[in-house]
Design a protein around this nucleic acid. Structure first.
Lengths: 341, 341
DNA sequence: GTGAAAGCGCTAACAT
DNA sequence: ATGTTAGCGCTTTCAC
């Protein structure tokens, strides 16, 4: 009947109702419910009691609109089926949430135009910041990010110049390191096996680095097998089977686009009775738990994924607090020599 | 200088500015920018041109506050390191996003009190709906969900009575099915190996179901090994090694809390020279790609994780549209006999 | 320490 | 088809 919000039946109680129940003004209730500064102890208690009694849940949409900065952070990832991004997201979420922030998620599926739409959509929620693992971003996407007016962290690769901030590792250096390692182990016949990396900038850069590292020793890839679809254990298994139709085993080392693929290859070798690393040596990327738990630990490159998420979150939080943050943060990588090479 | 929003320098342009640039009123610009109904063709074009020229990004906080329903959906998951939830989240995100909705994410780490805080926090963003894979939720959490005033979907398990809607499978039935299968294969010495499931209601229910299924044949678990920490390949490897100190191999079948653990056990068997399934039979849960790619495909129970995410999203979207939705949706499961049993 | 007024950017409702 | 008015629920001034 009345338009008074304290009469709105089963709708959510508003701050106005809390205030009226506590017998204070709206703004006092507001102050009490946040920090509680500039509010008398007694008033604070009254307001808190009223809020509890009414089961008050603040409306952050209204709060943000009135007050300024949101406590949401947009997160754009190319995939979730790759556990690498699940790990990163986990690190992000943990650290954001500790500071009372929450991720709004978008998954681009490595599609640049989809990514563009996502960035636009997420930005319309006026997040306090944005974290993105780019997928061959369009120019329009880069423009939106540059003009977002909030801190932006690009994660995973630190080779390209960052729009604002970057947290990750040099994918190129990681690729080169693998080349140097294999050469050092005496391999000269080296092949690459990957999933479709045309839209995966990081896998592409790693392959570049690998070829670059090899070329420094005047070595060229003996073969390259690239299968369509996202990386997976079964795909690696199939891909290596194909490779072995082109290339003789024996002194052969194979670099995979990542550990999933390499594990698949290991399974194929077990099945086909191939000796690892005698007939075929295997090297992955990311040092996933699965590869390290194999009967023969997989040679791989450890990337600190949780750390990337954590640092990205911290970089944002620091910027929210007005602090200066390094434009580029390198979490590094570590080549893990396993028993498969 | 002026307070006129068309003079606000580098701040984001508002609808008012778009309207003024297009020479129309705010509400007309608003109408044009959404559907474009009840707007003259010519006006529509002017407004769109103005928006493009100003690089206008709508402010959905304001839109939601004024207009009603948000296009955000709260998603609360117990973990991301388990690929099962990454898959579910992927399905959710895909289908939500197609309808212009976006997930706000919270990860509870299987901590009921953390979960409670998360639900409260996420609800304060006034999402249009909420999806949760519960982690032994507190009574307070259940109350919040019941009183959220928006559709709530509990996912993964359909055994408990849903607060609002549930999408998943009967974890208990899945456990029983595994028991029946192993008994049918002639196994009588059956053990369970798991990660810490005290806060994982689904793993607990599956174990219940397993024991129940066994008891129907008057069989009791020969041994139970539960190791602290989240499930993983290395943990499964370690856990099975411990089990074999308690129980003799030979005619032994082991059920694992999930595939990760079972794969670890397989690796241990390979290493220890144990014959699978002769010495030790292995059964997992979830039918992850990794298990199916093993030289010996792993016996497991296929759960349709993407499907759960997809159906949960669709259930919400249907309810947003005012349609009726079944309270419980069973995606079922399928026992996949592999070569490890 | 507390409050009144104004407004964040948008849309629903009711004009016209 | 377009505009006017009145908020959504909160916080920022600026008073007292």
């Amino acid at each position: 009947m009345s338009t008074d919000s304290s009469q709105n039946g089963d709708a959510r109680p508003t701050l106005a109702e809390v205030a009226r129940t506590a017998g204070v003004s709206e703004i006092t209730a507001s102050r009490a419910l946040r920090g509680g500064t500039h509010v008398a102890r007694r008033t604070l208690e009254k307001v808190e009691a009223a809020a509890r009694a009414l089961n008050y849940v603040p409306n952050r949409l209204a709060g943000t609109l009135a007050g300024g900065r949101s406590r949401q952070v947009a997160v754009v990832l190319p995939s979730l089926s790759n556990s690498v991004f699940a790990d990163v997201l986990n690190g992000l979420e943990t650290h954001l949430e500790q500071a009372g922030h929450h991720p709004i998620l978008g998954v681009s599926n490595y599609d640049p135009h989809h990514e563009e739409r996502l960035v636009a959509d997420l930005l319309s929620w006026r997040p306090a910041g944005l974290v993105i693992a780019p997928a061959a971003s369009t120019e329009a996407t880069r423009k939106m990010l540059a003009g977002a007016g909030v801190p932006v962290v690009e994660i995973m690769d630190i080779d390209p110049a960052p729009i604002d901030m970057a947290v990750g590792l040099s994918q190129r250096a990681a690729g080169r390191a693998m080349a140097h390692y294999l050469i050092g182990r005496g391999y000269r016949k080296i092949a690459y096996v990957g999933h479709d990396i045309s839209t995966d900038p990081r896998a592409t850069t790693r392959l570049d680095g690998l070829e670059q590292g090899l070329s420094e020793a005047e070595i060229k890839l003996a073969a390259t097998v690239i299968l369509p679809g996202p990386s997976s254990v079964p795909l690696g298994r199939e891909a290596v089977a194909r490779l072995l139709r082109e290339v003789e085993p024996g002194g052969l080392a194979v670099c995979f686009s990542n550990d999933d693929m390499a594990v698949g290859a290991m399974f194929h070798a077990l099945d086909a009775g191939l000796d690892v690393p005698g007939d075929i040596a295997l090297a992955g990327f990311n040092a996933l738990a699965i590869g390290q738990a194999l009967p023969l630990p997989l040679t791989s490159v450890a990337s600190r994924r949780d750390e990337i998420g954590a640092l990205a979150a911290k970089a944002l939080l620091a910027r929210f607090a007005g602090e200066d943050v390094a434009r580029v943060q390198d979490v590094g990588f570590r080549l893990i020599p396993g028993a498969t090479t």
